[in-house]
Design a protein around this nucleic acid. Structure first.
Lengths: 217, 217, 217, 217
DNA sequence: GATGAATGAGGCTTCATTCAT
DNA sequence: GATGAATGAAGCCTCATTCAT
């Protein structure tokens, strides 16, 4: 037993936990939460079925833990991205960074955007801490923008946060499902091409900052 | 056989079908699709279990049929609401009417916003005709607004439609789940009060037409 | 109402009964008794589901009635074919006629050889009258042959009847299933061709009369 | 882990599989395949319902596996019984041994003779390997007998094999169902007594070797 | 901690049969 | 007699979870 054997063990252990989470992410993305089988997650993770229950209370807990783990990374990344910026720039950064994360982690995106809505159980009974944090961060940016006169105060900040998230989430969903609307004059009947979710950030920024209406001179 | 016996029979038949759909709507809203039991739907509808299979292929078909039926009402109502208006006014009308429908039919709203996302099966395999119609209508309004110079053309119309729907859907979800963000200086820790989803239409209109950014003088 | 309207009605009625039996014969041959659906028989017969229960007590009764009806034709045909012949010639005639009937009515043959064995219910509970008649006729021929010194008396006649029927039935089964054993030097691996069930009568006659052993001179 | 723990485990596992097969044999013999309930088999085997599906794909597979397992024993026993004998003696041995097996394992006999015919599914779709082996063995004996001049070559060997099997199978069926034909002058109306299936071998031998016809001097 | 064979509750679905018309 | 929509009992099978090793 060397000095770092404890750390090794911890690493080995959390490594196994993370491997299970990663497997769950893949399997949930593949089949959806309800159709996903615990035994398939176990096989994907390279552990026995029973091992999963050493790290998670049950299948529900697995989904919630996965959601929390991924959402915390999202929140941390977003928090780092907006540090020190003025509110409007923060809003831009949030939008860009969020969509880039979606782009870089499609399996996680699928779980975050689709699977978590799968069950009233989770939406109604589970207190969605990390997602609440996310909304709070977004709402805070808007509130500060309103306080500092950079943003219109006619829309309550938490409501604005919800709507902005809705726009982002819907784009993410469309992108994940590969059913992007044909963007321009593409050949009719052509298979809808995946649009560039990263570049789409500009459109979200345009919508939520200047809106669609042409400003009267 | 009286003159209206045929109509009676037809009415009886479609009445039974509609009763099953209404029961499914309630039960899906109550438990979610996966936790919903076919036998409970049957009991709720006042028919035998087997009767459901005279009208629907299986449980999946029941959800899809329900979605289609409700969405067609939504589409018809929206189409009627925007007829003859200029694009920007159409957009306002769409937003208001949609949220009013959500308000008037919360069980349908729950199914439309939550349950249909429940399964990759539906999101990936099922061609979501009525929802596509909905998006097409919304996108058409934006496209016409852009053509007529009422709306900013920098955002592709189908993408704009997605984002607008996302904002609406997210508000609807928040309202349905009764987890509205505390709007102002309500007592912290207090149970979040349901906000007024009908009045929220003004906020959506504000966001998508004028945006959040304060216009420079 | 003419004088033969009663006969017509009777004809119409028994016609409907016979149509149901014929449909049952086809459907049982197609799917087997257990997999056969009463509603498919009804559709095949061109009557409503409920109509079947005006003519037959239940699905079991339908199979039994079908078996009895077909077996009575078999018995009548065989009885006519052996009338006035000496025992050994009667045995030949029985074998030939039986296999010719199989050949001419494959659907009936399938039901007679396969479906009736389907259930212990029928084999154990149902007193198989017509089949008993058949065996009695066959056994009678052997018994008379033994009495008249044409046939070896070392095998009890009812047992001999069973064995002869077994040989016939097995050939019929092999023929019905199209899995006839490759008869001669056919290309190995070639799909077994249906042998000629009518000509096979000679082989049955050879086996049961002279046996396989080469007679010592 | 002791030296025989692995063997124990293997024994335990195949023991459970065999226990399920034995239970299926009893339950199928009792009720017939279609009326047999998987849960009754499980109870009879002393395992949980779900355990059956660890060893067999489904109820059909259970029947097929049972048939294969029992038929392989039959084939092995028969092969051992005929080793080294001349063809005619082999034929005698096959007949005697087969009927003795029927006598010793009536439940297996019931499944082999009745239940497997239960479904067109099995007769038409399932490639009946072990039964084909059986017929091949029987046909081979006849073919060799014909080649060596011990047996009459006028009947194709595979056809002869079918007929011999048919005679055996029909006797087995009659015996299993306990509806043996009254052999001699038993009181009419008396319950048919089970004949001695083992002694019946002599009758089968007599029929298939010397035939019924009295040889002309 | 790890395993994976075993468990057994529970639901979707089928289909023979009925009965109001 | 004829219809066929409705019934509802019943069973196969799945799969999350446990626990002896």
């Amino acid at each position: 037993m060397t000095a770092h054997s404890v750390a090794d063990k911890a690493a080995g252990s959390s490594d196994k936990r993370e491997r299970i989470l990663a497997a769950a992410e893949r399997v949930f993305a593949r089949h959806g939460f309800f159709a996903a089988k615990v035994s398939e997650i176990a096989k994907d993770a390279g552990v026995a079925d029973g091992t999963i229950y050493l790290y998670f209370k049950n299948k529900d807990d697995l989904l919630i833990s996965l959601f929390e783990a991924r959402m915390q990374v999202v929140n941390a990344t977003l928090a780092a991205a907006i540090e020190g910026l003025p509110p409007l720039a923060q809003l831009h950064a949030l939008i860009r960074t969020y969509l880039r994360l979606i782009h870089d982690e499609p399996a996680a995106a699928e779980v975050l955007t689709i699977e978590l809505r799968q069950s009233n159980k989770f939406m109604k009974e589970y207190e969605n801490t990390s997602f609440a944090d996310f909304l709070r961060m977004l709402g805070g940016v808007v509130a500060r923008g309103q306080e500092q006169g950079e943003m219109d105060a006619s829309v309550p900040a938490p409501i604005a946060a919800r709507m902005i998230f809705g726009a982002l989430d819907e784009l993410a969903l469309a992108w994940v499902l590969g059913r992007a609307p044909a963007i321009s004059g593409t050949t009719p009947g052509a298979r809808p091409k995946k649009f560039d979710i990263v570049r789409a950030a500009d459109w979200v920024v345009a919508l939520v900052t200047t809106g669609l209406a042409i400003k009267e001179k």
